[in-house]
Write a protein that binds this DNA or RNA. Structure first.
Length: 436
RNA sequence: GUGGGUAUAGCUCAGUUGGCUAGAGCGCUAGAUUGUGGCUCUAGAGGUCGUGGGUUCAAGCCCCACUAUUCACCCCA
């Protein structure tokens, strides 16, 4: 029989046990914090009718969508979690209560050329708050507090939540030039952090923006200071544009209430260069970076949008949400060794029965320890104590229980600490205490 | 879509201006007196050098094609 070469598709991430354990730790932390903030879980299908997925898509995204035909049905794999959410909310509108707060952590697919840290199959961890007709700006303020709690707990080092408001930008640009151009400019300005002021100025000139305006745009966008200072600066610019004024008020509120919710100023900065590529953000926008690893890019981003489900319902559904690109984040963290695999197993203790005679006794011990919530396993396959200890060692199992004739006679078990290399003879009650 | 790089053991890679039985480290297996792992030492297994063609007395090395893979740009999370 010929052997088929085992291989995984490029752009698809597959982890070893010790890596997966770390991945799940991050996953669980995010999930726990989402739930703590009152978001309900949602799990929509990976596959949808093609027309659902394609409704919003266009241009670059559309080319990247995986599409299938099964029988006469056209199918597509979701490329984010927002489109399925839009469909879901439109579909179950009458059965949901609003504001609808949901989280979803799941896989999405994009058939683009794989690159370092960019995958064709990747996890996103999203929260969104959807309103029926209207949605208070206070929700925009709550989002940073959730981001703050998550990354505080994950402890990847100092991070900064950058915040901006599209209305402020749009209002400012509207005074200078026509709307179409403003949109393109936003995309370029968004990159200023990455490519620098000069490169941005150059690209703007290519767009045939007048020199005078290039200067204005750059110096506006690069206004720096504390949040309070920046708001004062923006107010003092004397721009009499309705959008601008509204945006500024929103920004002010978001900062104020996010602070009240416990996000320290050190972790929350107004940054006028943040624009986000996506067109559908209309108000608050967020981007979070690790201070010591700015090169990783944004680890969490999102914003406020006016109308979630316009393609699927006539209802107006404004929302605000964020997305953590979990696969990419994890990959980068591993690469930079901010996250390092530790254990290959979930097991706290391994029972080693010395021979057949010890099996009955060992099984009873296993049963009792598991009943007490211990993550305990028993070894059947390895021969001899040497092989068993080696097995435990390779997987970083912290404790080993040796059960042989002596132990059975005395009812005291040999309890070995693999890390310290020490061992003692203990009753099962003492072992339960040690493991809990 | 555009432009580069790479392809040799399970993994990471050496391999000189082409030269005779293709190497290292890690990992794996076994042993160093039969209930004690990690460290050390010893031994062993494991490769039609991506595929096809060409040049040559001789190709892992040079040339061509194909395939795979990877990085960057574009765009995005």
């Amino acid at each position: 029989m010929s052997i088929i070469e085992p291989k995984t598709l490029p752009g698809f991430l597959e982890l070893l046990p010790e890596e997966q354990i770390e991945f799940n730790r991050i996953y669980d932390t995010i999930r726990k914090n989402y739930e703590r903030a009152g978001f309900v879980p949602l799990d929509t299908p990976l596959l949808e009718y093609e027309e659902i997925i394609l409704a919003k898509a266009g241009g670059e995204t559309e080319k990247q969508i995986y599409r299938f035909k099964k029988g006469d049905t056209d199918l597509a794999l979701r490329f984010d979690l927002t489109v399925p959410l839009a469909k879901y909310v439109a579909l179950y509108f009458n059965q949901l209560s609003f504001p609808f707060k949901r989280y979803q952590i799941g896989k999405a697919f994009r058939g683009e050329k794989p690159q370092k840290g960019r995958f064709r199959e990747f996890y996103q961890a999203d929260i969104d708050i959807i309103g029926d007709g209207e949605l208070s700006i206070m929700h925009d303020a709550e989002i940073p507090s959730i981001i703050y709690k998550i990354f505080k707990e994950l402890d990847f080092g100092k991070f900064t939540i950058r915040i901006n408001n599209r209305k402020v930008l749009n209002g400012f640009f509207a005074e200078l030039l026509e709307e179409e151009k403003a949109r393109e400019i936003l995309r370029i300005v968004d990159k200023i952090d990455k490519i620098g002021k000069e490169a941005v100025a150059l690209e703007l000139q290519k767009l045939r923006v007048e020199k005078e305006n290039v200067e204005k745009i750059c110096s506006f966008v690069l206004i720096k200071g504390t949040n309070e200072e920046m708001i004062l600066r923006l107010e003092s610019l004397g721009i009499k544009n309705e959008q601008f004024t509204l945006g500024l008020l929103e920004l002010k509120n978001v900062i104020r209430y996010a602070t009240l919710l416990g996000v320290p100023e050190s972790h929350l900065n107004i940054d006028l260069t943040i624009a986000r590529g996506l067109d559908y953000y209309t108000g608050t926008v967020y981007e979070t970076t690790l201070d010591e690893h700015r090169d990783i890019g944004s680890i969490c981003s999102g914003g406020r949008y006016e109308n979630l489900a316009e393609y699927y319902t006539t209802k107006k559904l404004p929302g605000v949400g964020i997305s953590i690109g979990l696969s990419r984040l994890f990959y980068k963290l591993m690469e930079m060794r901010i996250v390092e695999p530790k254990n290959r197993t979930m097991v706290d203790a391994l029972i080693i029965p010395m021979g057949e005679e010890a099996l009955d006794y060992s099984m009873n011990i296993l049963k009792r320890l598991r009943e007490k919530g211990g993550k305990v396993c028993i070894s059947y396959d390895k021969k001899g104590i040497k092989q068993n200890l080696n097995y435990a060692n390779k997987q970083n199992i912290p404790y080993v229980l040796i059960i042989g004739e002596t132990e059975m006679n005395t009812n005291l078990l040999t309890f070995k600490n693999m890390r310290e290399g020490t061992q003692e003879v203990l009753s099962i009650e003492d072992i339960i205490k040690k493991l809990s």
